[in-house]
């Protein structure tokens, strides 16, 4: 008797779980790749309703599919980047992460490294610099998901909750991820973030243009990552980090289109792949010009 009473007392915090945090229909939801169109649209409407209840904003959650003949790739000019972190902050706003306290920037998919000229060793980099940039004798290297072709993160996932889409973007099904964080350990680019808490953002900060696989507000306890702003790029637009860059250091495009900007870079510039020795074949290139 005492034992049961003790157990009940111990479990008491569970009472404060909000309705909808864990629901039966969530538990029974199938993997993204197994969902029919009707099931998907039902789920999207439910997510919209849930998000409206939780965050007070009517969002529009889509499931835009990858297009044929498109392979996204990104290039970033190390000669141009000045390390102003506009991209890292735009990323946060675009992708609906917490905006509660100043250290929420930690969840941004982009980490901007400050390096000493004359070295390209990221282990000697600094992420905490501030003030006016670019600083003397320094250069800057923003790092985000490299959308590796041989991605160690998708290999690691025990439940196939993360995979590469046909357009080359590595995505996470936030409704399937069990939160084991093995993918985070596997990533050589520190590109994945975990929802240590339920995201908290005021209604005016919510970006209502959302996608199931990218920037919809994530549930607590799952891993998320850069998707090259899939909700924008699959509709033909540029990623948010590119549009905000004041130096034009960022180049984005379709690898399969021979006339694309990205192919121009690959053909004409000195291209550098970060941690090429990890053998992951990234689709994110650094270049000099």
């Amino acid at each position: 008797m005492a034992g049961i009473a003790g157990l009940v007392t111990a479990l008491k915090p569970l009472l404060s779980l909000e309705r909808g945090d864990i629901s039966l229909s969530d538990l029974l939801q199938k993997h993204y790749q197994e969902l029919s169109a009707e099931e998907m649209s039902r789920i999207l409407r439910k997510l919209e309703k849930q998000s409206n209840e939780d965050y007070g904003v009517a969002s529009n959650i889509n499931d835009t599919k990858a297009r044929e003949g498109v392979q996204f790739a990104y290039a970033l000019s190390l000669s141009k980047c000045v390390g102003c972190r506009r991209c890292a902050h735009a990323c946060l706003a675009e992708n609906n992460q917490s905006r509660e306290s100043e250290d929420d920037i930690e969840m941004s998919y982009i980490r901007v490294l400050e390096l000493d000229k004359g070295s390209i060793n990221v282990e000697e980099s600094d992420q905490y610099y501030d003030g006016e940039v670019p600083k003397k004798d320094k250069y800057y290297m923003p790092v985000q998901c490299h959308q590796c072709q041989d991605s160690p993160c998708t290999k690691a996932c025990p439940v196939e909750a993360t995979w590469m889409e046909p357009d080359g973007v590595v995505v996470v099904d936030y409704n399937w991820c069990i939160g084991c964080r093995y993918c985070m350990a596997a990533c050589p680019y520190d590109a994945r973030r975990f929802n240590w808490k339920k995201p908290s953002l005021p209604p005016e900060s919510v970006n209502p243009n959302q996608n199931y696989l990218s920037n919809r507000i994530r549930p607590q306890g799952v891993v998320e990552k850069c998707t090259f702003c899939l909700h924008r790029t699959r509709e033909g637009k540029y990623p948010a980090c590119l549009e905000v860059c004041p130096t034009g250091a960022r180049v984005f495009g379709n690898l399969l289109d021979p006339d694309s900007e990205i192919n121009y870079i690959l053909k004409n510039k000195r291209v550098y792949i970060l941690k090429e020795d990890a053998g992951t074949t990234p689709k994110f290139y650094y270049f000099f010009d």
Binding site: I22, D26, L27, H31, K155, A156, C157, P158, V159, E160, A161, W176, C177, I178, G179, C180, R181, Y182, F194, N195, P219, Q220, G221, V222, V223
Partner: peptide, 29 residues
């Protein structure tokens, strides 16, 4: 392992036929 999970409520995802186990690729599986 269970307490380390962010979503222990989804443990069934590890168990075919309910889930999709990434076997033999994932060492965790």
């Amino acid at each position: 392992v269970t307490v380390d999970l962010g979503r222990p409520d989804r443990f069934l995802h590890l168990m075919p036929p309910f889930g999709r186990m990434n076997w033999p690729i994932s060492m965790l599986s």
